[in-house]
């Protein structure tokens, strides 16, 4: 097997690694990277640890074959990759949350802080509510405390971890979780290896 696999540091990384181990990938080398971004090779597999957005860019450009990333990133970036499998790990809901009645009739346009401005704009455009996405690269939750926005679009798991009180989840924007993606080049050039891994992961998930 000659595969180049990317993983993002995520709270449930151990569950992903467990799945990949059971599917026959030698993940031990990846532990040398701890939580740092980097690349390591072992037993014919090249592992890369980086942010999900960077991994998607690497898959798109053909320097990585596979990656495990959150569905929310796929929705935001709409990358040119094949989304092969829901790994049923790290399930979460991307939600629109506000403090109390912060959005009720104050302005014609609601300010929504988020790491996912494109998803946010699309979601609200479809529903008819006019919003002004405020793009933040991390901790959208902070925007509420500072009064930067009226609401946020964020994963419910992130909101819970931030410990914000009094937030009401108004709407579910999307259901998310860890996804296995493959670059278009890898699907053609390393199809046999990818198909074999996909089959093993599919069997594992079905047997759970």
């Amino acid at each position: 097997m000659r595969l180049r696999v990317g993983l993002e540091p995520q709270p449930q990384l151990e569950a992903v690694l467990g799945l990949l181990t059971a599917a026959g990938l030698p993940v031990a080398a990846l532990r040398h990277l701890q939580q740092q971004p980097g690349v390591v090779e072992a037993d014919g597999v090249t592992w890369a640890r980086a942010s999900g957005a960077d991994l998607l860019a690497c898959c798109e450009s053909g320097v990585l074959d596979l990656a495990v990333v959150g569905k929310e990133l796929l929705l935001e970036h709409e990358p040119e990759v094949f989304e092969l499998l829901d790994l049923r790990v790290a399930p979460a809901r991307l939600v629109f949350a506000v403090v109390g009645d912060a959005c009720e009739g104050r302005r014609g346009r609601v300010r929504v802080a988020t790491r996912f401005p494109r998803v946010t704009a699309r979601f609200f455009a479809a529903g008819g509510l006019q919003v002004q996405p405020v793009r933040l690269t991390s901790a959208a939750t902070l925007a509420l405390s500072l009064g930067l926005a009226d609401g946020i679009v964020e994963l419910d798991t992130v909101i819970a971890a931030a410990g914000l009180q009094g937030l009401a989840h108004r709407e579910v924007v999307a259901r998310c979780g860890a996804r296995l993606v493959v670059g278009r080049a890898a699907r053609s050039l390393r199809g046999a290896d990818v198909a074999a891994l996909l089959a093993r992961l599919g069997d594992l998930l079905e047997s759970r």
Partner: peptide
């Protein structure tokens, strides 16, 4: 590849893509 699907709508039959190592697009 039976997942290969072109986004140009004028294609009606057999479709092809050529891939080479190190290039992420056909």
């Amino acid at each position: 590849d039976f997942g290969l699907y072109h986004d140009l709508t004028y294609y009606t039959g057999v479709i092809l893509e050529a891939w080479a190592p190190g290039v992420g697009l056909p």
